[in-house]
Amino acid sequence: MANIHSQKKRILRNERERLENRRYTSAIKTRFRRLEAAVGEGATDAATTEHRELVSTIDKAVKRGALHRNTGARKKARAARVIAGPKA
């Protein structure tokens, strides 16, 4: 543990920020699994709702800095591919 007061505060702040980033990434993974399940069941209304919520969560995570913008774009593209289904 650090001896300097400002460094102790920084360590605590880093931990809080790390946990918030984990919350975002975990929520994104959960929503992606829900999206895949909805598409697998053939529930189009549920799938579009899940897709909308997933994209919103990804955008919030990118805005907050939990995800890099390219990572967010890649995850949104993968979600769009799941929604589109297999190529004919």
Rank of each mutant, 00 (worst) to 15 (best):
T30V: 14
A80P: 08
M1T: 12
Q7A: 14
P86R: 12
N70R: 05
V39E: 03
K60H: 11
R10N: 10
L54A: 00
K29H: 06
I83C: 07
A43Y: 07
I28A: 02
V62L: 02
R69N: 10
V62P: 07
T49Q: 11
L67E: 07
A27Y: 01
I28V: 06
I58G: 07
L67I: 02
R74A: 13
V62M: 08
E53H: 13
G42A: 09
K29C: 02
M1Y: 10
S6E: 14
R64F: 05
G42E: 05
K29R: 07
N3M: 13
V62F: 01
T44G: 04
N3Y: 13
D45C: 00
K9I: 11
E17M: 14
Y24D: 05
A46T: 12
E36K: 14
N3F: 11
K87F: 02
Y24T: 04
K8C: 06
E36S: 01
V39I: 09
L35N: 01
R16Y: 13
A43R: 13
D59A: 10
A88T: 12
N3D: 13
E53D: 10
T48A: 01
I83Q: 08
R81Y: 00
R23P: 00
A84H: 02
E20D: 09
R64G: 09
A47L: 00
T71L: 01
S56F: 07
A38I: 01
Y24H: 15
R31P: 00
N3K: 11
I83L: 12
E15K: 10
A27F: 00
R18Y: 14
A43Q: 13
R18L: 13
V39L: 00
R31I: 04
K63Q: 15
S56R: 14
V55H: 03
T30G: 06
S26M: 06
R33I: 13
A43D: 15
P86E: 15
A79V: 04
D45E: 13
K29V: 07
A77W: 01
G72V: 06
D59P: 05
A80N: 06
A38V: 00
R52Y: 10
A27K: 03
V82H: 03
I11H: 08
G40V: 05
A73L: 04
R22G: 04
E50P: 05
V55S: 06
A27L: 06
L67A: 06
R78E: 02
I11R: 13
